[in-house]
């Protein structure tokens, strides 16, 4: 590359600057994930309501949230929510990011929960009925201990996907790594250096985690009955 367009000097100047945004990026990722994990239960319970119209409506609402761009959902939270009649309030960019991305990802997380429960074979339910277990005991001792472990690698995958998705919150001025890179880039005309740093940070953090989760997945697959196929749902989520 031509020296004018790439300078290691600018690169090393940009590095600490961009890195300052990492705390925010990680904080948004963790908060959003916790929000999504809690909200995922809402979908799970709503979908278990044994009424066809309710089930149908909930399914399509989830489908709607899942198949439309999260960046527009973020803009909605940031710019439109404050003027929504009665309930609208102005939220900080951080809160918008957590709610906007959190709701989007909760639709995936809800499906993961569901697949976990469905992975417990019918025979297990019948056996616990045959043993005359109470509803609570059935869930606590039989169903959940089997349903939760296979979901862990899937949740891990989505945590990484979310982490890589969080940079879009720069567009609603959440001051994470991408926001910092854009700021540095515009002040010093060093976009390529600054953006390369963002890429490196994402790669360095996401790649080892992905490898770890792949290992975990293999371990889980050998531990649990292979016939209890965990339904693979949309693997990649992107704006």
């Amino acid at each position: 590359m031509n020296g004018n367009y790439w300078s290691w000097e600018r690169f090393s100047e940009a590095f600490p600057y961009v890195l300052e945004g990492l705390t925010t990026t990680v904080a948004v990722t963790i908060s959003t994930f916790i929000f999504a994990m809690i909200f995922g239960f809402v979908w799970l319970f709503l979908r278990r309501i044994p009424l066809r119209p309710v089930n149908w409506t909930v399914t399509w609402i989830m489908e709607f949230i899942r198949s439309t761009p999260p960046i527009i959902q973020l803009f909605f939270m940031y710019l439109a929510w404050p003027v929504v009649p009665y309930v609208g309030v102005t939220l900080s960019p951080f809160a918008c990011a957590v709610i906007g991305l959190g709701v989007h990802f909760s639709t995936y997380i809800g499906e993961i929960y569901r697949s976990g429960i469905e992975s417990v074979g019918k025979g297990q339910w019948e056996a616990s009925t045959a043993l005359n277990l109470s509803l609570l005991d059935k869930w606590r001792h039989i169903i959940l201990p089997q349903a939760i472990p296979p979901t862990i690698p899937m949740l891990g995958n989505y945590f990484i996907i979310l982490f890589k998705e969080v940079p879009i919150t720069a567009t609603i001025s959440v001051q994470g790594i991408l926001y910092m890179a854009n700021t540095f880039g515009s002040q010093n005309w060093a976009y390529i250096e600054a953006l390369t740093i963002v890429g490196l940070i994402l790669l360095v953090l996401s790649y080892p985690s992905a490898v770890l989760i792949r290992k975990l997945e293999v371990k889980m697959n050998t531990r649990f009955d292979k016939n209890a196929v965990i339904k693979k749902i949309n693997k990649g989520v992107t704006s």
Binding site: P167, L178, L202, L203, S206, Y207
Partner: peptide, 14 residues
Amino acid sequence: EIFRGTSLIVQLFW
């Protein structure tokens, strides 16, 4: 690994 390990928005800007 490079394209899966980073974000679409970063790749787009880059």
